[in-house]
């Protein structure tokens, strides 16, 4: 079973209790490389390393099965700030 952006987004939403998920398939269709943005309050009060570990653990099998995975994670508050910065 190969991953698609949609299936990965669904998995992330469920397992990481995410409010917003953006998955970009960077592989050109082979389902081997993804870039994701995850917005969830489970990242609150956690440093970068802890956050990424959380994601890595939640997606252990998925990440193991693909070639490249890049992530950006935010709490709801940080995400709002990001949006304001880009909008402003």
């Amino acid at each position: 079973m190969s991953l698609t952006s949609d299936s990965l987004a669904t998995i992330i939403k469920q397992r990481l209790n995410a409010n917003e998920v953006e998955v970009q398939d960077m592989s050109g269709g082979c389902g081997q490389a993804f870039a994701v943005i995850i917005v969830s309050d489970i990242f609150k009060n956690k440093n970068k390393l802890m956050r990424h570990r959380l994601v890595n653990n939640a997606l252990k099998q998925e990440i193991g099965s693909i070639h490249a995975f890049t992530q950006k994670v935010f709490t709801l508050e940080e995400w709002d700030l990001q949006k304001k910065q880009f909008a402003g």
């Binding site: 970068k48 390393l49 990424h52 570990r53 890595n56 252990k60 990440i63 193991g64 490249a68 995975f69 890049t70 992530q71 950006k72």
Partner: peptide, 25 residues
């Protein structure tokens, strides 16, 4: 390092992170 991807950076013996973390840091 219980980290699924490469590259991996260590500073003074401590695991710092992968490419995403290094870039944002």
């Amino acid at each position: 390092s219980e980290w699924p991807t490469i590259p991996q950076l260590f500073v003074k013996g401590e695991f710092i992170g992968g490419c995403d973390i290094i870039m944002s840091m």
